[in-house]
Write a protein that binds this DNA or RNA. Structure first.
Lengths: 97, 97
DNA sequence: CTCGATACTTTCCAACATGGAAAGTGACGG
DNA sequence: CCGTCACTTTCCATGTTGGAAAGTATCGAG
């Protein structure tokens, strides 16, 4: 309603996506497979969450052929970084940071 | 499984409940009505979330008749405080605290 | 050109979580 | 008895999830 509504972002708040954002926030980009291992979910589940982040304009999905193998690398967009940071700030406010 | 599984608590993570815990964490107790106003939800919704926190053993619900009116005050139990703090610590880890 | 492997994507589906509205409950005060 | 206050519970329609399985695209091998 108040400030909560402006910064609190459900797309970012869901556990798997919060983890993805947290991982991508501290690196330039990360492979799909690496993120999957870190988050500990299946291919299909990560794929669906990444899709949601992508549709929200928060994550950039780049497919590059490296060593004749398609590798998908993920990275936060500027909007994604802003949304993540705003959400984290809101979490800190709520949890008494 | 990993540290995430041990500290991350879905009961605490849901937005309305995270707010309730955050509010109760900094006071000894708070009236149902005050919490409802702060969280910005309806009676029924708060009641249902409080019930979940109560069933998890995180919140204590005390009904006292004050000025011939029943007043319900909520407070975190020791377990609730521990769960909240562990969850917050986990959030900080995930979000790069 | 067909086959199998790699690396995701999408679909299918059953389970669960939510919120709003409305009905229900218990304790007064009139 | 009745109405009010302060929640509780029920009803219901919707939205989100994850796992399993099928689907797609791109090689390299045969």
């Amino acid at each position: 309603m108040t400030a909560v509504q402006r910064r609190f972002d459900p797309v970012v708040h869901a556990p798997p996506r919060l983890q993805v954002c947290g991982l991508l926030a501290v690196v330039d980009n990360m492979d799909f497979a690496t993120v999957r291992e870190q988050v500990g979910v299946s291919d299909s589940v990560l794929s669906k969450h990444v899709k949601q982040l992508e549709e929200a304009g928060y994550v950039n999905v780049r497919k590059a052929t490296i060593a004749s193998r398609v590798r998908t690398s993920l990275s936060l967009t500027a909007a994604g970084r802003a949304a993540f940071e705003a959400h984290v700030a809101e979490l800190r406010r709520i949890t008494g940071g």
